[in-house]
Every structure is written in structure tokens, then in C-alpha cells.
Amino acid sequence: MLSETPAIDIRGLTRVFESRKGFLFREATRTEALRGIDLTVERGAIFGLLGPNGAGKTTLTKILSTLLLPSTGTAMVLGHNVVREADWLRPRMGLVLGGERGLYNRVSGRENLRYFADLYGVPLAERERRIAELISRVDLDWAADRRVEEYSRGMKQKLHIARGILHRPEILFLDEPTIGLDPKSAREIRKLVRSLVADGVTIFLTTHYMFEAEELCPEIAILSKGRIVARDTVAALRQLVGGDRTLEAEAYGFDDREVEALRALPGVSKILSEEFGPALRLTLRVRTGETQPEDVRALLPNHPELSVRERRTSLEDVYLDLVEEEGH
């Protein structure tokens, strides 16, 4: 019965932070980090949560991983309440917050893993074998007995992930696992994450790297100002913002009449403008194949400097459209 429950089921979740600053004259501030989240995530896949800095991604991850209590609403993970059943959940979930912190720097990577293996109750008879396997899996064999303070950021991130899966969790929370990593290390981490899904682990991944979400996550939710503003597959999200094709027209300014003419083209659902150096760029989201770059050029004959190009609407476009709509 429980195996049919979603990996994550969130209803009306809010989280408010109240803090006070000052010594004699205390000034209270109130921040709504999450404002009514409803979200369901099925088991056995990677679910991506995208959002700008301060959108509430880490707050949501911490609530789901039992490190923070919600203000209102309920959050169920593996069919169990994260507040009332944290003791049941903790051995079954892994958390990777990543970054430079979160490890004992003066001891070796292997000792860090031993310590957490003991806290998680990894059977003693299996402990050393499992640690060796994980060290090998994250390609740290050569550095396992070195102090963590000698590790690069990418190596520390790999060690964080090894620690997160040491006890073989059913669900793993990864909070921005590749942030600040060089491209090679980031690619290795993504490869590792994919291999975990193949092992049957459900992964809840937060990131603000669009290509990472697009590459790893069949389903994505976009969080902005504490609200889920969209949730779907990447393909469906492209349609949500007005089409999977994007045409970009660049020239030294366009008048209103020209913009309206472009808007009237078949399949054009949205036009965004932005200054691009001395030029102005119009971005057209195009829903169908009817409007081509030549059609745009034909409507703008008075711009000899005009350049028009077509590309696929990226997840970054989707993200920016949705987040800007929220006024983030």
C-alpha cells in the first residue's frame, strides 16, 4: 500500500521566518519563504525544483528532509509526515546540502564516511565494504585517506553525495549539487546522480542551472517567491510560455507599429523586448511552424542592420518568462 504512495506529497505548505535585529531597539522582520506549496512527486525519478536565489528552494528541501518545521500545511515523504514521523523518515532519506561546509575537514574522507555510517547504523560487518564501494563510485579512491581540507570543491561535493547515500536511502534530497563546480566535476556529479536513479532512488534536486534540470529531470517545478508557478515536463513548460520555437530579431530600435505587426503574425504568442548593447532585441515565442524568420524580415524592411535567428525555446527562456511574470 505504502509503495503506491507518492514519494512526496505537499499540501498548502507555508513557512514564515521571523527574526529580530538590534540590541536595545529590536526590529522584527517577517519573511514568507514558502507561500502555499502544493506538490506531488512520484517515486523512482529525478524531480527538479528550479528557482532564483531566495525563491525558497532550500527552505522546502530542509522541511522535506526534517531539518525545518513548516508554519502551516502538511508535507508527506514516502507516505509519512515529516513533522510527526521524522524518526521513521530519517533513516530512509539522504540529504546533500553541499558546498564547502558540512564535513570534518581535519580528518580523512574515509573517516567522515565511517562517522556518518555509525550514526546511520550501517551494519558494522558491511561498513568498510560499503565505504570502499562508495569511494570508488565517486572516484575518490586516490584521496580517501587524505584530510578533507586538502580536497577541491568538486571532491568535497562527491564526498557529500557519498555521505548522503551511505545508508541506502529511498529518497535523496540534493540541494544545488553542482553549484560552483568546474564543468568536468559538474558533469561527473550529474553522471553520478543519473546512476542513483538507475538504482531506484527517488531524487529531489534543486538547482538554478537550466541545462542541468533539462538534462536530468523528466519533470520540473519552478519556484518563485515561495510559490510554485509552473510544474510539468520541459516540453510542456515550453508550450506554457507560448511555444517551443523562439525567434530573435535584433536592430537599432523598433517602433510600436512594427511590434504590433509582429504580434499579429500567426502563432506568435508573446513578444519580449530587451536592450542588448546599442541594439534592441525582440524575442518572439512562436507556437506553430507558420511564422518563419523570413516573415519577420519581411515586416521590418527599414532595418538594414536587422538580424533574425531562430532557436528552440530553452528551459532558461521558460524559467525567465515565468519568474519575470512573478516579478522576481
Binding site: 531539518l67 558546498g99 561546509r101 564535513l103 570534518y104 550514526l119 546511520y120 555521505r163
Partner: peptide
């Protein structure tokens, strides 16, 4: 060290 969170999160 930032190890308080993973330690508290352990069972």
C-alpha cells in the same frame, strides 16, 4: 563546520 545539520538529520 556546517556539520550540525547532517548530524541532527541523522537518525
Amino acid at each position: 563546520f556546517g556539520t550540525l545539520e547532517p548530524t541532527i538529520q541523522a537518525p
